[in-house]
Nucleic acid binder design. Structure first.
Length: 377
DNA sequence: TCCTCTAACACTTTTGAATCGC
DNA sequence: AGCGATTCAAAAGTGTTAGAGG
């Protein structure tokens, strides 16, 4: 748990009046960044199944800068990284054509929502129970994704006394470059399999390798990816799971590479294109050690939004606002672009905006990803 | 032939009810 | 009676695999 409240701008240190917690004071930090980065280096893959599969690594965040006594709702949705469909060919991801039409966009609301800011800030928030599915008819509220497409989770915080009052509230949105993943129905990259088995306790039943069922079912005509994974697991023990702080490139490099990732040429194991190009045969451990020199504090990535977050003013900000032109445009946060991670102007992954498409000028951008077509908690 | 998806599998971890002792 | 600790079975979740289907 990383508390960052000390480092936030010391604005309005007067008593907790209405505007004490104002613009840009909300800060979100991704937990398990080391793990995320180690997966991102290879090219994170997330299994999606008909009945829903949890993410691994799972989304876990910490938040600071909230008003302790105001209620907030925190939620996450998945956003396509680009408009391509991918395929795994010859040990690397390649573009396989245009993306399929977006499935129904769903939002996972953190089960603690709504809760006061003090609750959200006292410990990290886990979205462990969020599940991903490829079943467009899913009735369980899982996040629906297309396989072989790339997505990233997007976190939203808004003041609301109940999940039902969220719709018209001001949002702050956060995303993290290292959380981009490719949705798959079966693992393609054996490095991902190995990394997951090293970190995921549920996979221990398979890592032993010598179980009766495995020895019975091990056959030479399995899928290529499966055979690769099996060979690697039976190989001599490699480097231990790398749990030290993972290195990464600077944030500006991340931003540059996120731009590059939108280009249709994808080479190397990481479909996000953010990682440095490296020999795919090089061991993961080596890759991590090589990059450790560029270690940095992730907090530095979080740049306060350029647009003010609407402060805690329950009277001034009645809920259930109807679409109207009365909104003060000068104080109305702008909507995010369709792909926030590709923003080149500044390195912030934080956005502030109103969820209602009528309240800003970029209806097309935002309405592409409705936040509340479905919620679960 | 290749690629993608699904269900079944064996195993571990988590969860929650039941029991026990203080 | 109430509380906390322990035990144990069921449920949940995992990656791998074979086979079906496009």
């Amino acid at each position: 748990m990383q508390h960052v409240s000390d480092s936030k701008p010391k604005l309005n240190m007067s008593p907790p009046a209405a505007d004490s917690y104002q613009q840009g004071s909300i800060r979100m930090t991704l937990e398990n960044t080391d793990l995320w980065k180690s997966f991102d280096k290879i090219g994170t893959e997330m299994i999606i199944t008909k009945h829903g599969r949890r993410m691994f690594p799972h989304c876990s965040i910490s938040v600071s800068g909230l008003h302790p006594f105001a209620n907030y709702v925190i939620m996450v949705d998945m956003v396509p990284v680009d408009s391509f469909k991918y395929k795994w060919k010859k040990e690397q991801w390649e573009i396989a054509g245009k993306a399929e039409p977006q499935p129904p966009c769903r939002t996972y609301v953190h089960p603690d929502s709504p809760a006061p800011g003090s609750h959200w800030m006292k410990q990290s928030l886990s979205f462990l129970k969020m599940k991903l599915t490829n079943n467009t008819l899913d009735q369980h509220g899982h996040i629906i994704l297309h396989s072989m497409h790339r997505y990233y989770p997007r976190f939203h915080i808004t003041q609301a006394d109940s999940p039902y009052t969220v719709r018209w509230g001001p949002f702050q949105t956060f995303s993290f470059p290292e959380t981009v993943f490719t949705a798959v129905t079966a693992y393609q990259n054996s490095k991902i399999t190995k990394l997951k088995i090293d970190h995921n306790p549920f996979a221990k039943g398979f890592r032993e390798g010598g179980t009766h069922s495995h020895s019975k079912r091990c056959r030479s005509n399995g899928s290529p990816a499966a055979k690769r994974a099996m060979l690697e697991r039976n190989a001599p023990p490699s480097s231990p799971p790398c749990l030290q702080r993972m290195p990464s490139t600077s944030h500006s490099e991340h931003a540059e590479k996120s731009q590059a990732s939108t280009h249709p040429s994808v080479k190397g194991g990481n479909p996000s294109g953010w990682a440095l190009e490296q020999d795919p045969t090089e061991s993961l451990h080596t890759e991590l050690l090589d990059l450790h020199e560029n270690d940095y504090s992730f907090e530095e990535q979080m740049v306060p939004a350029s647009v003010p977050y609407q402060p805690y003013r329950s009277v001034d900000y009645p809920r259930y606002l109807l679409p109207s032109n009365d909104i003060d445009v000068a104080h109305t946060p702008v909507p995010p672009p369709s792909h926030p991670l590709a923003i080149p102007e500044h390195n912030s992954q934080q956005h502030t905006y109103y969820n209602h498409p009528y309240q800003h000028n970029h209806v097309a951008d935002w309405s592409q990803y409705p936040l509340f077509s479905y919620s679960c908690w």
